[in-house]
Design a protein around this nucleic acid. Structure first.
Length: 295
DNA sequence: AAGTCGGGGGC
DNA sequence: GCCCCAGACTT
């Protein structure tokens, strides 16, 4: 299976800037943070702009929070941007400005969890890590377990499966591990997609337990049940951040009253503004509110 | 283990 | 309109 996946990846992989040979470890790390819960096509322009302005951890560490949040723009989950800057500052302080190359050191950085630590260690430093993201979980669920979708939560059982199905040789060879991981991720992104998978184009279709079982639909337990959006605090916070990203400080009362969300009550608006201030995504001075660093 | 945290493009 | 997207963090 490794050989077939590798062969398929060699001819089908997208040419993404953070996969190029000359991309720095920092570039890989920035991409991994941006790609958390965010599709590649939306990350591309933000990554290019970020790397153009702040090509090193030191440059990122020195920027103002307002600049960081402005360049992040509408990528979503803006707390990721602040954590990325905090990670850059930790890299400067603890690692002399160089992105650390081990899973454990990476895990200690803000915003870096199990997936991102393994991904950066593997893709940027050729460490033989077992990488498990949403694509890989889905590919494994289908090919090896015969299920349409993995469960909602990442279980110890799935972690063991991912470890066990990685080729023996890849556990000691970083480059082999890298190919195995990235190829499985790419397969999940391009062929073995959540909806309408392109099984006829799949390089391992004849090995797939799910296909062999007749591609049974997902059980109700496996349905992901999308998070609600309309009317949530997340929507209100996002609308407030969009106002703040215009750059000018605004009167607190104006920010609270002029949101394009008539259904949002004042209690909710106040709660959301307070949470943005608490998260460091906004700052206030007397009655003015702005991105942190502007005031 | 469950909730929270953005935003947009595809179907 | 719903669903999903290279998750992390808190409770």
């Amino acid at each position: 299976m490794h050989f077939r996946l590798a062969q398929w990846y060699a001819q089908a992989a997208r040419d993404l800037p953070w996969r190029r040979e000359d991309c720095s470890a920092w570039g890989v790390m920035v991409s991994e943070i941006m790609l958390q819960q965010t599709p590649v096509v939306r990350v591309l322009p933000r990554w290019e702009e970020w790397m153009r302005r702040w090509p090193t951890p030191a440059a990122t560490a020195a920027a103002s929070a307002a600049e960081i949040l402005t360049v992040w723009d509408r990528l979503g989950y803006p707390r990721r941007a602040l954590r990325l800057q905090a990670a850059a500052q930790a890299i400067v302080e603890r690692h002399g400005g160089e992105v650390p190359g081990t899973r454990q050191e990476l895990l200690a950085l803000p915003g870096v969890g199990e997936y991102t630590a393994a991904a950066v260690a593997c893709f940027a430093f050729d460490q033989p890590e077992v990488v498990v993201d949403t694509n890989i979980r889905r590919v494994h669920a289908r090919v090896f377990s015969g299920h349409a979708l993995p469960g909602k939560t990442f279980t110890a059982q799935q972690r063991k499966l991912a470890h066990d199905v990685m080729p023996q040789t890849a556990h000691d060879d970083g480059e082999l591990a890298c190919t195995w991981n990235i190829a499985a991720m790419e397969l999940g992104a391009l062929i073995c997609t959540a909806r309408a998978p392109k099984c006829v184009e799949c390089p391992v279709q004849d090995l797939c337990a799910w296909r062999a079982a007749g591609s049974p639909p997902a059980t109700e337990e496996q349905q992901t049940r999308g998070q609600a959006w309309a009317g949530t605090d997340r929507q209100v916070r996002g609308a407030m951040m969009a106002v703040l990203r215009t750059g000018e400080p605004v009167q607190r009362s104006v920010l609270l009253e002029t949101l394009p969300l008539p259904e949002a009550g004042m209690e909710q608006r106040v709660r959301c503004l307070d949470s943005l201030l608490r998260d460091g995504l906004a700052a206030e001075d007397k009655e003015l509110v702005a991105l942190p660093g502007v005031i």
